[in-house]
Simulated scan of single mutants.
Amino acid sequence: MKTVYVCSDTVTGIFSGIYDAWKTGRGEADCAIALRGMLEQQLFCDYVEVEETEHKAIAVENLIKKHLGRQAYWDIYHAVLAADKDKGDAILGTMLAARTLPDSTRIMEHLSHPKVEKVFELSRTVGGEAHALKGFLRFQELKNGVLYAQITPKSQVLTCLAPHFANRLPLENWMIHDKSHDMFVVHEAKKKWILIWDDMLDRKGSLEVSEKEARYSRLWKDFCKTIAIESRTNRRCQLQHLPLRFRPNMVEFTN
């Protein structure tokens, strides 16, 4: 009977599920990963709830880096962040396929394998969204002086964005709010960033922007309208360079 390991849609959850499946030594046809809340039950399967721990997640991370290589690890890690209910099973299948190769570090070259191909595509999708948000994300200064930005991504890309902005704004207090997944990345000046969930954040301060920020926002909107040439507007070209889904969180497109 096939065993399906049910876990949460987090890095710790999926890696813990892979840990339990890997430890059994069973093949791809005999085990699978399913995400809690996205489960489609099938006949003749044994469903097991995964005990999720940091120890298991770290063990799987080290296993991937040692036997599959760091590049494969980053492809797998990005795939974990994707918005796809079958990602856990694709990652497990990729790792089990790597176990059969003479050189497991070349697993991501085997795109003829459907699970490897899926991991590759998910990694590319997450990387593309994170890259786009590095340009489309907009910070606004709050009354308490903190720089605040909100995004509504499809994938859980906060851990991809945080190192980028921590490197560019090391002396600033800033936070990025992922409204799609109820998560925050918070950076205190001269310190390391941390990832927290919405229910863990103490929102004593208001999210109202400062007077200076409001003034500059108005100036920026007026500037964008002034330089626009109505007769040369190309909506199709605009959509190619700035998709509609990024616009609601950008100052230029807010009322």
Results as ranks from 00 to 15, higher is better:
T3M: 08
V4M: 05
C7N: 01
T10P: 08
V11E: 04
I14K: 04
F15I: 00
F15E: 01
S16C: 13
A21V: 01
T24S: 05
G25A: 06
R26L: 04
A32H: 09
A34D: 03
R36Q: 13
M38N: 14
F44M: 14
Y47S: 09
V50M: 00
E52D: 11
T53Y: 03
H55Q: 15
E61W: 03
N62I: 05
I64S: 00
G69K: 06
G69S: 12
R70L: 15
A82W: 05
D86R: 15
D89F: 03
G93S: 12
G93E: 10
G93M: 09
M95E: 02
L96R: 10
A97V: 03
D103M: 04
R106I: 06
M108E: 09
L111I: 13
L111V: 15
L111T: 14
S112P: 01
S112L: 02
K115V: 10
K115D: 04
V116P: 00
F120H: 14
L122N: 02
L122F: 04
R124W: 00
T125D: 09
V126H: 00
V126S: 01
G135C: 04
G135I: 11
E141W: 06
K143Q: 14
V146C: 12
Y148D: 02
Y148C: 03
Y148H: 08
I151L: 08
K154R: 14
T159N: 15
L161Y: 01
H164V: 02
A166D: 06
A166C: 05
E172V: 02
N173Y: 11
W174M: 07
M175N: 11
I176M: 10
D182Y: 15
V185I: 05
V185R: 11
K191W: 06
I194G: 01
I196F: 09
W197L: 10
D199G: 10
D199I: 07
D199R: 05
D202F: 02
S206A: 14
V209G: 11
S210D: 00
E213L: 07
R215I: 10
R218Y: 13
K225S: 14
A228R: 09
N234C: 11
N234I: 08
R235P: 11
Q240A: 12
H241V: 09
P243L: 07
L244T: 12
F253G: 02
